[in-house]
């Protein structure tokens, strides 16, 4: 079985729960005694997808405005980006849209984008409707899920969806039809490997 390492970066405002999502995702495989991961800003988890193993290398980014400009260092070379917003904070959804635009322009082409509306356990305080977010995600062909890191809702699903959309390893680098389109897909001839 082939092992593929997939770099995934986490984007989104500070406080929306980026690292909680990762923590939740990796917690069942996380054992500080054996696998001394330094902290939640970089974590890995390997999952099986069809006949491949996908090892997610999850790069967290600092969401504060002041560090915003450092993000390209982190998302460069990513196979996927998970952009997280807080369903109880409209502002974080606007920030998300900016991230999408930035990724379109500066991010790796064909990067798989997943949008995660976190804190869906707090639906009383909801400011962003699921429909709005879903429509937006559809319009940019992004994966969309509402998650709750707190209650472990839809966390694995985000990564499963990412696995599905990652282009197959062989076959001249063909991309999934559902992939996030950046409007400037690389030409097929160019992408033939070596």
């Amino acid at each position: 079985m082939a092992l593929r390492e997939l770099k995934v970066c986490l984007l989104g405002d500070t406080g929306v729960g980026k690292s909680s999502i990762v923590w939740r995702f990796v917690e069942d495989s996380f054992d500080p005694n054996i696998n001394p991961t330094i902290g939640a800003s970089f974590m890995t988890k390997t999952v099986q997808y069809q006949n491949e193993l996908h090892k997610f290398l999850i790069w967290d980014t600092a969401g504060q405005e002041r560090f915003r400009a450092l993000a390209p260092m982190y998302y460069r070379g990513s196979a996927a980006a998970i952009i997280v917003y807080d369903i109880t904070k409209e502002e974080s959804f606007q920030t998300l849209k900016n991230w999408v635009k930035e990724l379109r322009q500066h991010g790796p082409p064909n990067i798989v984008v997943a949008i995660a509306g976190n804190k869906c356990d707090l639906s009383d305080a909801r400011e962003v409707t699921e429909k709005d977010a879903k429509d937006y995600a559809d319009s940019i062909h992004a994966i969309f899920v509402e998650t709750s890191a707190k209650n472990a809702i839809n966390i694995n699903e985000v990564f499963i969806e990412i696995s599905k959309r990652i282009p197959v390893a062989d076959g001249a680098g063909g991309t999934s039809g559902k992939g996030f389109k950046l409007g400037r897909q690389a030409s097929e001839s160019r992408r033939t490997c070596c």
């Binding site: 082939a2 790796p108 690389a186 160019r190 992408r191 490997c193 070596c194």
Partner: peptide, 25 residues
């Protein structure tokens, strides 16, 4: 390039090629 490290290479190639692809576009 031509030797042995296909698995690693594949990964790296994907990155590179997608980037050069960007360029061409």
């Amino acid at each position: 390039r031509s030797v042995h490290r296909r698995t690693i290479r594949r990964q790296m190639c994907r990155v590179q090629n997608s980037e050069t692809g960007t360029e061409s576009k």
